[in-house]
Design a protein around this nucleic acid. Structure first.
Length: 321
DNA sequence: AATGCGTTCAACCGCGCTCCG
DNA sequence: ACGGAGCGCGGTTGAACGCAT
């Protein structure tokens, strides 16, 4: 008894979405909210399967999505999170709420993998032969690194908790994908935006692929009045709060790694665990490689927590909240 | 200008998980 | 307890694009 197809394979359109389809989908979701994807093609008349609709929404049309131009800080967070969580892109994305898992996955595969390889390669040259012995990093080292993270996270969190920053903290929970949706005035697939999208498309009707840019525009427009204003206007303030947010997210991921059960913790900590197993988890454990990567990863903002917090125990961290 | 090759990224596919009757 | 339906996730694909020759 096989799984039935999510939709009839015949008559289902595949490939890039057109602006018209985007408009239809956005309009529908604006009215009904995201969810019940199975009903979307039926109710909208879109010749797409429910999965395709969901994907299009979550990855491109959903408000609050930032595309391209990963900052160095974001890169570091991704690398850090990937080292700890492995290829759990959704989990990683939940700490970068403006990024989708697909986006992060693509960025990892196309940019960061190479970057790390390059960094590691340059270190390996001076240390080849020692790899087998340095393959294993001691648990103690990882604990220390995590303790550092926790300290940084604590600081970031206490910063974020200070009264003038509390507004940013409201968004500190990991995104479930729809974090922006409930924001008052935040969800803005407004008629103006749809009109704008349409207008954009009318300007380049010959380029169906521009659906993406148009949709992106829509997404950004949707963010107007929320956190998207940072792209222009008052960059310093916005960037700062965005950064604070990211740091707070870092704090959350560190805490979660302890919080989300010991098995999770031991999984990420034990040398034979998935963390160090395969190519999908970069081999960050070689001593020399770590040193170079550490330098880069800890480059920004790490100074505050560099002295290794000998007073913080894992138990203490587990009870942090 | 034409062609080949490498890169990027939107979208698809298949599997696993959860919920519900 | 079981099975079906719906959804989410990670891996993979392939079209579009840019650059080199």
């Amino acid at each position: 008894m096989g799984r039935p197809p999510c939709c009839d394979k015949v008559g289902v359109k595949k490939g890039p979405w057109t602006p018209e389809e985007d408009i239809i989908l956005v309009s529908y979701i604006q009215e009904h909210g995201p969810g019940n994807w199975r009903a979307v093609p039926t109710n909208t008349g879109l010749l797409r399967c429910s999965k395709s609709c969901r994907l299009r929404w979550t990855n491109y049309l959903r408000p609050g999505i930032k595309r391209g131009n990963f900052t160095e800080h974001e890169e570091k967070m991704i690398i850090h999170l990937q080292a700890l969580l492995g290829n759990r892109w959704a989990a990683i994305a939940s700490y970068l709420p403006q990024r989708t898992d697909n986006d992060i996955k693509n960025y990892w595969n196309t940019h960061l993998k190479k970057k790390l390889k390059k960094l590691q390669g340059s270190e390996c040259h001076s240390r080849d032969g020692s790899s087998s012995s340095s393959q294993k990093i001691s648990r103690g080292q990882w604990e220390r690194r995590l303790q550092t993270d926790i300290h940084m996270a604590k600081q970031a969190l206490s910063d974020a908790l200070s009264p003038e920053k509390s507004s940013g903290l409201a968004e500190l929970k990991p995104s479930n994908g729809y974090i922006s949706y409930a924001k008052p005035g935040g969800y803005a697939s407004s008629t103006e935006n749809i009109a704008k999208l349409l207008k954009e498309w009318m300007r380049n009707p010959s380029k169906p692929v521009s659906a993406n840019s148009a949709a992106t525009q829509l997404s950004f427009d949707n963010m107007a009045g929320t956190d998207s204003a940072s792209s222009e206007g008052t960059p310093s303030k916005e960037e700062k709060s965005s950064r604070e947010m990211s740091e707070a997210f870092e704090s959350l991921f560190v805490l979660e790694s302890f919080d989300s059960s010991n098995s999770d913790f031991s999984q990420s900590m034990s040398p034979e665990a998935s963390l160090f197993q395969d190519e999908s988890k970069p081999d960050l454990n070689a001593q020399g490689q770590l040193s170079l990567l550490e330098k880069w990863l800890f480059d920004d903002g790490a100074n505050q927590g560099k002295d290794y917090l000998s007073d913080i125990t894992l138990d203490e961290n587990a009870n942090f909240f």
